[in-house]
Design a protein around this nucleic acid. Sequence first.
DNA 1: CTGAAAGCGCTTACAG
DNA 2: CTGAAAGCGCTTACAG
Lengths: 341, 341
Amino acid sequence: MGTQRSGPVTLRTIADQLGLHVSTVSRVLHAKPDESLRAASASTVERVRRLADELGYQPNPHATSLRTRRSNLVGVLVPRLSDMVLATIYEGIEEAAAEHGLSTFVANTGDRPETQRTRTNMVIGRRVDGMIFGDAYVDGRFLDEVAGRGIPFVLVSRTAGAHPSVTCDDYLGGRLVAEHLLELGHRDVAVVAGEPYASTGIDRTAGLVDRYREAGLSVPADRIAQSRFDVSGGHAATARLLDTPNPPTAIFAVNDFAAIGAIGALRHQGLRAGDDVAVVGFNDTPLAAELPVPLTTVRSPMLDMGREGLRTLLRLLEGEAAESKRLRPELIVRASSVPSP
Amino acid sequence: MGTQRSGPVTLRTIADQLGLHVSTVSRVLHAKPDESLRAASASTVERVRRLADELGYQPNPHATSLRTRRSNLVGVLVPRLSDMVLATIYEGIEEAAAEHGLSTFVANTGDRPETQRTRTNMVIGRRVDGMIFGDAYVDGRFLDEVAGRGIPFVLVSRTAGAHPSVTCDDYLGGRLVAEHLLELGHRDVAVVAGEPYASTGIDRTAGLVDRYREAGLSVPADRIAQSRFDVSGGHAATARLLDTPNPPTAIFAVNDFAAIGAIGALRHQGLRAGDDVAVVGFNDTPLAAELPVPLTTVRSPMLDMGREGLRTLLRLLEGEAAESKRLRPELIVRASSVPSP
DNA sequence: CTGAAAGCGCTTACAG
DNA sequence: CTGAAAGCGCTTACAG
């Protein structure tokens, strides 16, 4: 059995017990199945593998990273994980990362530029191989800087400038909503539009407005209200939109949570979603279908966005060119946009 | 300016440019403000600090970890980050970790024992200093193993055996719900109880059942339905509870999302939450207040749980004893449990 | 087929 | 006050 060493098992533990040199052990453990022949004799390979298994050897990633200058670490920045949309995208990232032997750091930035900066520095300080940003500002200035520092990254959920991104086709999503509302005869629609720095809200709004214009109808500026992306943000924005002598007959909130807030604001005014005012959300989070008034919304492929985002980063890390992708949205019609019979 | 080195700035870069030895530079950069005197002469300290700043020196954490056997890394396991409750707890963990110069790995385990195993191994393989589990099974068997491997950890959200934990006082929360429903005159209550392996659901249920028993009322087994913790889990469990000739007059779902599912299931039967059946949730997530029928629920201090969980781990890492904590819940009464006037 | 050496970037006693 | 050495655990040409 050899000497019983305390502390974690290292290459040296194995080498000593087998009377080999650490470099031999390293070579064996490192070789892909097919090239093990070149690493050592068949019997040595066998003995090393068996003992490594028995002792539960796990390479020290700090030593490996120090030596190879590759950390197999990916940094992920999101506005906030308590936003189910981003959390789900992150789940996709994590799944795909695990499949490829990568680990991920996530940090919440609250969409605050100052925090984006400090978190990015912190993550880069940890020597990640690449980053994924879910909190891009549409102007992309900060990201230009990051690119200038030579660190590879991919955006998910939001686009910015020409940086590679994996997003939902938000513009198309907005158009789908417009078509649905036009069919229902709504000529006067208002938009809970999200934050002005996020491409998601911008593009979803633009899609709706453009499609309305094509139908000969304009959506005036005072029908479009900025908002936070959460429930209370949607509530506040809707309250403002309703504070007018001639309220709209339909509301498009660019996010399911904002839509829930919109429904809350309507209720405050004694108005019911569906019967009195059509409400449409975005994302088709698992809540949408279960609300007391089930929510019409646009399904966006959140998990896939994450998975595909990581794969794109992987390609970048291997020196290939990264192409941006827009994934297809799908309109899901429920009771919140159609009056009960 | 000295030689222009390519690649990242290391201690050597600074040492060479200043004609010092790396060990001197290390000592200076390492010293706390007050002990810098002992590290080097005042002028050397000044020169080193200035240049490090200028060059934007960031120590290579892999080298530091390799040398010091401390990674300043914490591994966090949660059932799923797309559960807003866990995501919020994690935000608390991350905040507190950042304040203490620690970074965190999070992984989703989906509450699957197999995944808990592989993720734990993966995280330990990354040489974290400690772990935080938000996905503890109440039997604690797996955690006993982890403890046996000598890795320090703290539980959040759920308890298990005698392992140190930071949780909401779930039992008390259940009692608060019982008192509220008893006051309203409900003698026949049903529980959407969550997963049988999670202390949260178990304790919340027990609190309610015990308080009812003290009032001379029993909650029979067929009024208690296991459920997943998400919306569709709550829906399914409620559908089962309603499938009886004499349905209950009140439903306690041990989680806001399950409660939303419960409301959905009621609606399917033509029943309205509040007017027809009282519904109470747990956690007071931001949605609760904004639902078309605002949800009565028990507020649990999610952020604090995370922050306090990390602090407890920190104490453990410093060799102190860790005490479990139960944070105080608070009942929030809204329309879902009181008929409209 | 296997060994020996060098080195990734850092820290920490130990000298002087 | 500063330097020199050793070593954390690994990988990778280079010998033989």
